[in-house]
Computed example of a mutant assay.
Amino acid sequence: MEDLKRRKIALQMPPKPAPHIFDWLIEIGLTEAAGMGAVPISSRELAAWQSNTCVRLAPWEARLIRELSKAYLAEGRRAEDETCPPPWGAPVTAHDREIEEAQLRSLLG
């Protein structure tokens, strides 16, 4: 983030048409812990959250929250590859690649 600010690159974020859904997702937790790592939010966890907060999710909201949790995990796993581009940026162009390679050559000599 600091590098982007220093290079004066604006962070491009996708539109957020239903901010309450994202707020609930963050409140519930993006994922659940499981025996071998993180898993998507379960229906059981959603039901417990609804019971504890007295918020009643519409079926489509519950499905969307679970899908967002799945997408978050999938992107996290995809991002483990060092060549994975950031999800908020524009696709990497040949020109971008040339600039990065030139910077790397100048550092390595």
Rank of each mutant, 00 (worst) to 15 (best):
M1P: 04
E2P: 02
L4N: 07
K5Y: 08
R6P: 03
R7I: 06
R7C: 09
I9W: 04
A10S: 14
A10N: 13
L11V: 14
L11T: 11
Q12E: 15
M13A: 15
K16Y: 11
P17I: 03
P19K: 07
P19N: 08
I21L: 12
F22T: 11
G29I: 12
L30T: 07
E32V: 03
E32G: 00
E32C: 11
G35Q: 04
G37K: 15
A38Q: 06
I41W: 01
S43C: 01
R44S: 12
A48V: 10
W49E: 08
W49S: 05
Q50N: 11
N52T: 03
T53N: 13
T53A: 03
C54I: 01
A58R: 15
A62E: 13
A62R: 13
L64E: 07
L64D: 03
I65A: 01
R66S: 04
E67S: 12
L68R: 10
L73S: 09
G76F: 02
R77A: 08
E80H: 03
T83S: 15
P87M: 13
P87Q: 11
P87I: 15
P87G: 13
W88P: 00
A90V: 13
H95C: 11
H95R: 15
D96P: 00
E98Q: 13
E100H: 00
E101F: 00
Q103I: 04
Q103L: 07
L104V: 07
R105Y: 15
R105G: 14
R105I: 08
L108M: 14
G109P: 02
